[in-house]
Simulated assay, not measured.
Amino acid sequence: MSYHHLALAAKDMAAIHEFYEDVMGFELVTVEIAPVMGGGWGKHFFYRMDGDDSKFIAFWELHDVPGQEDHEFDLNLAAKTPPGTNHISFGVDSADQLNERRQQWNAAGHDVLEIDHNWCHSIYTRDPNGNMVEFCLTTGQFGDAERERALAALDEKEMKPTPPPAKMKQWLASEYQG
């Protein structure tokens, strides 16, 4: 079983399109336009990731939906969770690809946070809905010890922290030299 698509509502579909197609490099491939459960109608836009016809991110542009003026599009604000808790992560295959994505975000005017989590290396920015998006490269391997630690954490009631990140760096768009 694999991931097929994640669907989210868009606050500003034009800004979402520009970010996910021009900045992220995903391709808008189709739209479904239909009534929405509960009333109103929507356009459901699908963006193909990395040319793979089995993996998409999709966005709803909603119209005439009851209560629409109260919709919250930032996942963490909607859930009342700390910033960055709910986020969208996309995979890359190499450190070069991760660096290219960081440069692409900076060149498009987005600040980037880079974190080496000791088992994966990530970069983060925010999309036009305010949601944190991530590109992530798995750098570690998982064995019995990692699984045992994870299973033990399921029952722990006190914080037993893992090692801190090996690296954290903020890449400001204003300092990007291209």
Rank of each mutant, 00 (worst) to 15 (best):
M1F: 14
M1S: 14
M1K: 13
M1V: 14
S2Q: 15
Y3T: 15
L8I: 11
L8M: 13
A10W: 09
A10V: 02
M13L: 10
A15D: 06
I16R: 03
I16E: 02
E18G: 04
F19D: 00
F19N: 00
Y20L: 00
E21P: 00
D22H: 11
M24V: 04
F26P: 00
E27F: 03
E27D: 12
V29D: 09
V29N: 07
I33Q: 12
I33P: 01
P35V: 02
P35K: 01
G38K: 03
H44C: 10
H44L: 14
Y47P: 01
Y47F: 13
Y47M: 05
R48V: 07
M49T: 15
S54P: 02
K55A: 15
F56T: 06
F56E: 05
F56Y: 14
I57M: 08
I57K: 04
I57E: 04
I57D: 04
F59Y: 12
L62N: 10
H63D: 05
P66R: 06
E69A: 14
E69F: 07
E69N: 11
D74I: 04
D74F: 08
L75E: 07
L75P: 00
N76V: 09
L77C: 05
A78E: 11
A78N: 12
K80Q: 14
P82R: 15
P83R: 15
G84Y: 14
G84R: 13
F90R: 02
F90Y: 10
G91T: 15
S94D: 03
D96F: 04
L98H: 03
L98V: 01
L98M: 02
R102D: 03
Q103V: 01
Q104R: 15
W105H: 07
A108W: 02
D111N: 09
L113R: 07
E114Q: 08
E114A: 02
N118P: 00
W119R: 10
H121L: 02
H121V: 00
S122Y: 06
Y124V: 00
Y124E: 02
R126Q: 13
N129T: 03
N129S: 05
G130S: 10
F135D: 04
L137G: 03
T138E: 15
T138Q: 14
T138G: 11
G140A: 08
Q141D: 13
Q141P: 00
G143N: 10
E146L: 08
E146K: 10
E146M: 10
A152Y: 07
A152V: 03
L154W: 13
L154E: 13
E156P: 01
E156K: 13
M159C: 08
M159H: 11
T162H: 09
P163D: 14
P164C: 09
P165R: 09
K167Y: 10
Q170H: 12
L172W: 05
S174R: 13
Y176R: 06
Q177T: 13
